[in-house]
Design a protein around this nucleic acid. Structure first.
Lengths: 369, 369
DNA sequence: TGCTTTTGTGTGTGCGAACACATTATATTT
DNA sequence: AAATATAATGTGTTCGCACACACAAAAGCA
């Protein structure tokens, strides 16, 4: 019978136990202390000895026992996260939950996480929080750089201080972060286009709705829009579908309503709406109020209000940006780099989850990733 | 500024380090040995003492240090997996990969995994492999019980031997497995219906295509079909759409082609096809050959051939059953139960991932879950 | 030469839990 | 009451690693 065997022993070296520092020391005719010094590049080792030890480490394919390491070294890794306060935008509950979850998994390895919150509508509050964060000299930083310009000097500072930082949610990959985590905004736009067009076989108008953001400072929204438009071009559909662009401000209801009703009146064949942010519920609510039920809406994120309109059919699909996962993986990337010395990918793109009424449950309260 | 602080110290007990057995022993006026006996229910502890210790464990919110545990106890956990050989059906590469991935994460905790392969088209080979598996007296078993009847006596045996077993892929939840892992077949069918109907606004006929399976022995396919039909009833669409059922056998090409062309000829308004297994590519290939391009197909699983037809547009959507994840979580459920003493959910439903050309990449080679 | 640095190397302890073993207290038998 | 069994509890070693420290040899310098 066919049989695979996964176990600690390699096939070649059949009955070898896992290689320990002791084993290396023995084979190299030195003490464990010396091996330790080589492993940690603490110096104070003769050249020839160092080479010999390194060779043997390679030969024996030594892999440190992470348990024992975490147990032995009482080192504490102090991570800091810098994210918007959920009280201003419930979206940010997700990342915070993800960060907390990652912390729970990693605290055994000596990880501590401080979360600094700022007001996503006030650049100053970002700066204040970031300065405070810096005062504590963390070993690694995770942040959502929604204030790009304001974040720049901090990038410089961390680079100078050799503090790895991970960015998420807002696609920025200059300034050598350790890693960027989030979705591919461009593909995200293409996917949204597919989902709308697939359900709207007849030629019609489609609205691209941006919300609340300073578009010039929000590169990811621009990318989403390009991806969205690209889909129609790539599939030779740009003659059949008219794409309208709108920027809305949900803060002032009356203005928002006026803007939206203008768009609807001016485009009688409007049948689909792509909301580039998590504010799809604003539009759904408006349409519901007006008893307009034949629109297809695609938006982002499983906010309670969005879920509500997904369930009653006003919203056709939500693309899950996995905010929880972003926080979770952000902390994990730092740990992988600092604690486990793993290579971490500069781009960590999370899946583009398509959520409908039918599969909603699996994305709502998953504690795992 | 707002600030959350995740660290080893609880807020109430500010400067407490993590609680160790020693701390409990101290507070309970006993030795660590006694605490240990209480923790592991090894007996030989006076009733009153046990109660006191348990109370203090609770009060102090003790959580064992998994590192130290894994280090200290050299215990080896021997898991066995019993799955079809991928050489008969490439689908099974997924579970095997997931099992291997889980092993890599868990080997630090002393986990070993033996994978026994059988021929999914020969019940005897299943029995042979299962017997061989039993001979090794594993601590836990993960299997896909695609031969339901043949698996029954083994369920009994494991139950009698107190060996936890986890089932996956084929929905079976009798016989008290530790856990079942897979998709909710019923919801899966509903989702497929949604994806087809959403893209086919006009009334038409839709084919439900089963493949290769002995339907009477494949409860999950029946459930998929019920869910699929339910969608149309629930949404009052059963007048507009005619649902046709077909059972195909891909082994005999000529027969299969005849069957399929019959269905197409007899239903000129056929526009959608729901393939309940991973064999959607068979139908896509046929249609492609006949230059029929206006059908919407929804099927399962990211097999290379399916991916091919997803990319060229013949298949609209694939629902990812996450075969890799099933193997991964299967092993993890065993570990959670046996090693980490966690409660494990009897039903572990994996998300219903909707895969299109646009978001395909994220589901193809994700090493994480 | 005697003395201080520097460099190379080995030893020992602690981390938290598991488990074997040693010891003490209590019950039972003779 | 002494002997013995048995239940209850305490002690010590182990796991693999990090890190502090001890110490020796070599090198620098007067």
């Amino acid at each position: 019978m066919f049989l695979y065997y996964f176990c600690a022993q390699t096939q070649s070296n059949m009955k070898d136990k896992t290689v320990r520092i002791k084993d290396i020391a023995l084979k190299a005719n030195v003490s464990t202390g010396t091996v330790d010094r080589v492993l940690h590049k603490r110096g104070r080792v003769a050249k020839d000895v160092e080479e010999r030890v390194l060779r043997i480490i390679n030969e024996l394919n030594y892999e440190p026992n992470l348990m024992a390491r975490a147990l032995g070294s009482q080192k504490v890794y102090r991570f800091a996260a810098l994210i918007p306060d959920a009280q201003f935008d419930v979206y940010w509950y997700g990342p915070k939950a993800g960060i907390e979850h990652a912390f729970k998994e990693l605290k055994q390895f000596g990880v501590e996480v401080k979360v600094y919150l700022f007001n996503p509508y006030e650049a100053d509050s970002f700066i204040t929080a970031a300065k405070q964060l810096n005062a504590t000299q963390p070993d690694g930083v995770l942040l959502s750089p929604i204030f790009y310009r304001e974040a720049l000097p901090f990038f410089e500072h961390w680079k100078a201080q050799n503090i790895p930082f991970v960015l998420f949610n807002t696609e920025i990959t200059d300034h050598q972060p350790l890693s960027y985590i989030g979705q591919d905004s461009y593909l995200s736009g293409m996917l949204a286009a597919k989902m709308l067009q697939y359900g709207l076989p007849e030629p019609c108008s489609i609205l691209i709705a941006h919300f609340d953001e300073d578009i010039s400072n929000a590169a990811h929204l621009v990318k989403k829009e390009s991806g969205f438009r690209k889909y129609f071009i790539q599939n030779q559909l740009h003659d059949s579908y008219k794409l309208i662009k709108g920027e809305f401000n949900s803060a002032k209801f009356s203005v928002f309503h006026q803007q939206l009703s203008d768009v609807i009146e001016n485009n009688p064949d409007l049948k689909g709406i792509y909301v580039t942010t998590s504010k799809a519920f604003e539009i759904a609510a408006y349409l519901k109020e007006r008893h307009i039920h034949d629109f297809k809406i695609v938006g982002y994120d499983l906010l309670p209000k969005n879920v509500h309109f997904l369930n009653n059919g006003m919203i056709s699909f939500l693309i899950n940006q996995n905010p929880k996962g972003q926080g979770y993986w952000g902390i994990h990337q730092l740990a992988n780099h600092l604690i486990f010395k793993k290579e971490v990918a500069v781009f960590k793109y999370l899946p583009l989850d398509i959520v409908t009424k039918e599969n909603l449950n699996y994305f709502l309260d998953k504690p795992e990733y």
